[in-house]
């Protein structure tokens, strides 16, 4: 593939992981990888890094500076609401963060991110209330946790044949419906991450006026569950959310082309060691930052990609994307796999 001139990719759901070498990750390394992959702004869920305490905030600020040095703007997403977390945690984190970085003009909009889905509507409502008051965007996984617990695949013929623990597509419809109603109730802006079903995408598109947007992982536009059958149990195909049915994949792709859904680079790379684990024991993977644009060139036109991965998310965050030359894809696992599957 030849180099393409595109503006920065703006990625709303990047994890703090370095493609290709997840054991060697640091914010600096991530920033370099993001820059190489054409990402200009990355919202980073700083997992394992509580922003409540002072040192962590300083570390995050340092990381942002380091990222800017290589031409990437990092927006650390506050994600204090984990399972069992309370609103008090969020308030504390928010306070600590504001105190620590008020000199940083880079943060256009505050982003809060829930790393796990919640089926606690009350908690979601309180987060929404607070986010609206602060002008923050809340990124929430799409699925209902009680229906998706333990699942590594979508319920249906493929999961039944392979004997994989699975969730129904309705897990997303329920989760998305809840988020839409909370958005309506609170007036906060929500971004539903990891949309993977046609029904979830349709709900988001219908209710865009409420202030809800959706992000689909690149992997879900490229592969569907049929890939599991051609290469059974390949943990490189383990995704969060899972690969969807081919019907859903096509619907997602159509929604992206209409501009109704945004695209992110996905979650993280699957390291070599984890590829040998059983499906249920491996942690979910996804596309790497560096190759998303190249991978998606097979299903999206440059203009469609530009909107879904750059202009759309930038508008949401209130920043202006800058021009950049994208490098050809770095060979990472999923890009190789997709090539094999389509061959």
């Amino acid at each position: 593939m030849s180099n393409a001139n595109l503006v920065d990719m703006v990625d709303l759901t990047v994890s703090l992981r370095l493609p290709g070498a997840p054991d060697d990750e640091s914010v600096t390394a991530l920033a370099k990888a993001a820059a190489a992959g054409g990402v200009g702004v990355a919202v980073v869920g700083v997992e394992g890094l509580s922003l409540v305490d002072g040192p962590a905030v300083s570390a995050a600020v340092m990381a942002m500076r380091a990222a800017r040095a290589v031409g990437v703007r990092l927006i650390p997403a506050i994600c204090p609401i984990r399972t069992g977390g309370t609103l008090a945690d969020l308030r504390a984190a928010e306070r600590a963060w504001r105190d620590g970085h008020e000199s940083e003009a880079d943060v256009v909009t505050a982003v809060w991110r829930l790393t796990e889905p919640t089926d606690d509507a009350l908690l979601l409502r309180r987060i929404g209330d607070l986010a609206r008051a602060r002008g923050a965007i809340v990124v929430v996984p799409s699925v209902d946790r009680s229906l998706s617990a333990g699942a590594v695949a979508v319920e249906g013929a493929v999961a039944t044949r392979l004997g994989l623990a699975a969730m129904p597509e309705a897990a997303e419809a329920i989760g998305v419906a809840r988020i839409i109603e909370v958005a309506r109730l609170t007036g906060a802006r929500f971004v539903v991450s990891g949309v993977f079903t046609a029904a979830g995408a349709a709900l988001i598109e219908q209710h865009a006026a409420v202030g809800v947007s959706g992000v689909v992982n690149a992997a879900n536009l490229l592969c569907d569950e049929g890939a599991l059958l051609r290469r059974p149990y390949d943990t490189r195909l383990l995704q969060a959310p899972p690969l969807s049915t081919s019907t859903s994949r096509l619907a997602l792709l159509a929604a992206v082309k209409r501009g109704a859904l945004l695209v992110s680079s996905g979650h993280r790379h699957v390291p070599k060691r984890e590829r040998d684990l059983e499906m249920t024991r491996a942690t979910p993977g996804g596309t790497a930052l560096a190759s998303t644009a190249a991978l998606l060139s097979s299903v999206l036109t440059p203009a469609e990609f530009l909107h879904a991965a750059c202009i759309g998310p930038a508008a949401l965050l209130g920043c202006t994307p800058t021009a950049r030359v994208l490098l050809p894809a770095v060979d990472d696992d999923l890009s190789i796999l997709v090539r094999e599957l389509s061959a």
Binding site: L162, G163, L164, Y233, E278, T280
Partner: peptide, 28 residues
């Protein structure tokens, strides 16, 4: 015998002996 579906398939890729599945997860 393993509680994860597909474990014998994994083993078949890394072991040189022939694998007999004595029950894997919810699979077979």
């Amino acid at each position: 015998r393993h509680e994860a579906s597909g474990a014998p398939w994994h083993l078949s890729r890394v072991m040189s002996g022939a694998i007999a599945n004595a029950g894997d997860g919810q699979h077979e």
